[in-house]
Design a protein around this nucleic acid. Structure first.
Length: 740
DNA sequence: TATCTTTCTGTTTTT
DNA sequence: CAGAAAGATA
């Protein structure tokens, strides 16, 4: 098999250059992933064992795509390390974290957990969270961890008595809490791995030998610590290939550092540099538009993408009256374009913030356009999911105090804030974990009967499953916990709409477990493994390509994706570029790069809209068109003028009149019944449920189906029940029948 | 201790 | 407007 076929000369050059460091500057749509995959295939063909190759990406989705496309190309599967940075570090930590004094049962804390811990630290230090806002502290901690600055070092670097010195105290406390809880945050996953490598030469050498060949995707988004990790692993053999595009660096706020590109050429000698500048994705109009925007950035490596594709259509810019109008404009455009050659999934709506999705969703529903939103309200952020997750984490790692506090009184066991505070203090005095204090019989006896009973039950359940977890499957543990803790029974007893919806979510979480068990070798399965897969999962990873629906997401999430038709709403000063970013040159340039990423997602058609008036948190703000719109070369734009007068003359006048009538008419209806249409489903528990169907539920009575979609293998229906509100139900479990 | 009510405050972007 | 946090009441 010749893996060089179908590649251009630059791509071939990159594929064939295997020994020695290489920097591939790959512009948007230049066949970057293809090149990487062919390079790996070529290496394997040349006799390099897949065992010696490490490929790192930023998202699970990118990792999965790489793995799938590689095995398609070479026609067989290898157990290779094609992982995200965090995933790779998890694997390494699992075998070596004991070197740092943690047990390998460690919990992973996400951003929300971090916030909780910081809040507690502030309280314990008697500091005002107005003066020291949680995000401010979080940023300090994150920045320090990116640069490998420990709490103690950070403290020394701050002037005593200064604000930053006070903040450093919180960092210190925060670290202590994490150590006590045997927990790591996301930044720690990278940081601790680096630390192990630095302090244990033998471990480092083992991995240097293992990973003789290293590839890094989206290199422009690596932060300092990630770079250091690659540098450590690669310095022995120097076979490191990094692929990136400085114009697409959109995570600078998170520590991503373009300097890493320069640093790479410094740290590895004789770096081969290859530029991929031929774009295979977009029309030349779209490409020119992208260039006309990005060229306004000073901080960039000069380059210009080119294509031999046709000019294509002009870019449509349109000023709307407000965000509702904007939504309707988009919905109308989609229903007009959606024809034989375009599917719904060929369209994407890319916005700056999640909050923008609402108005657009309303319009799409009116026009009966199926859509899927990524990010925003996350399944894993729901209370009940966090609760059951905390139980599982706790069974894995009883030292996890955060999880204890989350669920010790969930369901109610009569253990309130006061009792907990007392016990926590006791644990601190004794230098023990909260859990071991809870287990202490003398302590239990010192408390009231009711509390004693509650604690006893709680401790027993956790201990039981903690001891038996290795002999049980994850789903057995899950079922057992739901039952033995009384969590599910308590919800059932409440017999409210909210409780039912929570039960449905808990059932849906079960399907996540089934997914895990199906996709993982039996002997590989563990509670730890499952928790890991949950912690590192993002919404974009569960993007379902089979569903024919419009995709809505932030421009950040859209990186690496492409669509025939792209809409970019909300091009307004203050929103995009965001208010916070316009003060600094760097901030503004990052926004501009984000705009560049958005534009270059489009293959054929691009729509950019702005609203002259926008409702943003309760207030109507008057806005000005984004400077990015003005940067676009006017020759590339086709502007639709939107005033009531011209509209009346418009050929689509009838259409519009009709629509506005229908819209206001349906809006009324929408408010009452929330009746909308989306996809249909024929699976489920025997019954056929379609959008718009009337159904009867045992508890909620009659309602109407709003949407039917598949999530993690479970089919769910969003149903508006008369007088009960809207519920999302898993059809597998929901007691539903169809009525007329 | 639990729940209900009111007040406040605030929105990027994510592994 | 909505979600969270603090405050008030049972």
């Amino acid at each position: 098999m010749d893996y060089l076929e179908g590649l251009n000369s630059k791509q071939k050059e990159a594929v064939e250059y295997i020994e020695g460091p290489m920097l591939i500057l790959a512009g948007a749509g230049s066949g970057k992933t293809k090149t990487m995959i062919h390079r790996m295939a070529h290496m394997i063909e040349k006799g390099i064992s897949p065992y010696h190759i490490l490929a790192v990406t930023f998202t699970n989705k990118a990792a999965k795509e790489m793995r799938d496309r590689l095995s398609d190309l070479i026609g067989q599967d290898y157990t290779m390390w094609i992982l995200t940075f965090h995933g790779a570090c998890m694997r390494i930590l699992r075998s070596h974290i004991h070197l740092l004094g943690y047990s390998s049962d460690f919990s992973i804390y996400d951003g929300a957990d971090q916030k909780t811990v910081i809040k507690e630290c502030l309280k314990a230090a008697n500091m005002d969270d107005k003066e020291y806002p949680v995000p401010y502290i979080q940023k300090i901690i994150g920045d320090c961890k990116d640069r490998g600055i420990s709490a103690a070092e950070n403290e020394l670097a701050c002037q005593v008595g200064s604000k930053s010195h006070k903040a450093a105290q919180i960092y210190k406390r925060y670290e202590n809490v994490l150590i006590k809880n045997n927990a790591l945050d996301f930044d720690d996953l990278i940081l601790k791995t680096v630390k192990i490598f630095e302090e244990n030469k033998d471990v480092l050498e083992y991995y240097q030998e293992k990973f003789k060949y290293i590839m890094v995707d989206e290199y422009q988004d690596t932060n300092y610590m990630q770079y250091k990790l690659i540098k450590l692993l690669g310095q022995k053999y120097s076979n490191v290939c990094v692929v990136g595009d400085d114009d697409q660096c959109i995570y600078e706020w998170r520590g991503a550092n373009i300097q890493n590109i320069l640093g790479f050429e410094k740290d590895f000698k004789n770096v081969k540099v290859i530029k991929l500048e031929q774009n295979y994705r977009s029309t030349s109009t779209i490409l020119s538009a992208a260039h006309s925007v990005i060229k306004n950035n000073c901080q960039r490596k000069e380059k210009k993408l080119w294509t031999d594709q046709e000019k294509g259509e002009k870019i449509t810019c349109h000023q709307c009256m407000n965000e509702k109008d904007e939504g309707l404009f988009i919905a109308k455009a989609i229903s007009r374009l959606k024809g034989l050659e375009l599917k719904y999934s060929d369209f994407a709506i890319l916005y700056r913030t999640h909050a923008q999705s609402r108005a657009i969703e309303d319009a799409l529903r009116l026009y009966e356009i199926p859509y899927a939103v990524f990010g925003g309200l996350k399944f894993y952020d729901r209370k009940e999911i966090k609760d059951v997750g905390a139980y599982l984490k706790l069974i894995q790692n009883p030292a996890d105090e955060l999880s204890i506090k989350r669920v010790i009184n969930e369901p109610k066991r009569g253990i309130g804030a006061k009792t907990l505070e007392k016990l926590q203090l006791l644990a601190e005095e004794r230098g023990e974990t909260l859990f071991s204090v809870l287990m202490d019989e003398d302590v239990q006896n010192s408390l009231s009967q009711k509390i004693k009973k509650g604690i006893g039950e709680f401790v027993n359940v956790i201990l039981k499953y903690h001891n038996e977890k290795d002999q049980m499957t994850v789903s057995e543990i899950y079922e057992g916990v739901l039952k033995d803790t009384g969590y599910l029974a308590d919800l059932k007893m409440q017999d409210t709409v909210e409780a039912q919806s929570r039960i449905d979510n808990i059932m849906e979480f079960k399907s996540t477990i089934y997914d895990y068990e199906e996709s993982t070798e039996e002997e590989e399965q563990s509670l730890f493994g499952f928790l890991e897969s949950v912690s590192l999962r993002t919404d974009i990873d569960s993007l379902d390509e089979d569903e024919d629906a419009i995709l809505m997401m932030t421009m950040h999430s859209a990186k690496g994706l492409e669509f025939p038709v792209v809409f970019m709403p909300g091009l307004e000063e203050g929103l995009f570029p965001g208010r916070r970013s316009v003060d600094s040159q760097e901030g503004l340039e990052e926004e501009r790069r984000l705009c560049y990423v958005g534009i270059t997602r489009a293959k054929e058609k691009l729509f950019m809209t702005n609203a002259s008036e926008r409702m943003l948190y309760g207030r109507t703000e008057y806005t000005r068109p984004s400077r990015f719109l003005k940067e676009l070369d006017p020759d590339l734009i086709q502007e639709l003028v939107h005033t009531p007068k011209t509209k009346a003359k418009d050929a689509q006048n009838m259409d519009h009149k009709h629509n506005s009538f229908t819209i206001s008419d349906q809006r009324k209806y929408l408010n009452v019944h929330q009746e909308v249409k989306s996809a249909t489903s024929e699976k489920s528990n025997g019954i056929k449920i379609n959008t718009g169907d009337k159904v009867r539920h045992k508890k909620f009575g009659d309602g109407m189906v709003i949407t039917v979609k598949e999530k993690n293998g479970t089919i769910t229906a969003t149903i508006a029940f008369d007088g009960q509100g809207i519920k999302e139900l898993a059809l597998e479990y929901a007691p539903l029948e169809k009525i007329n």
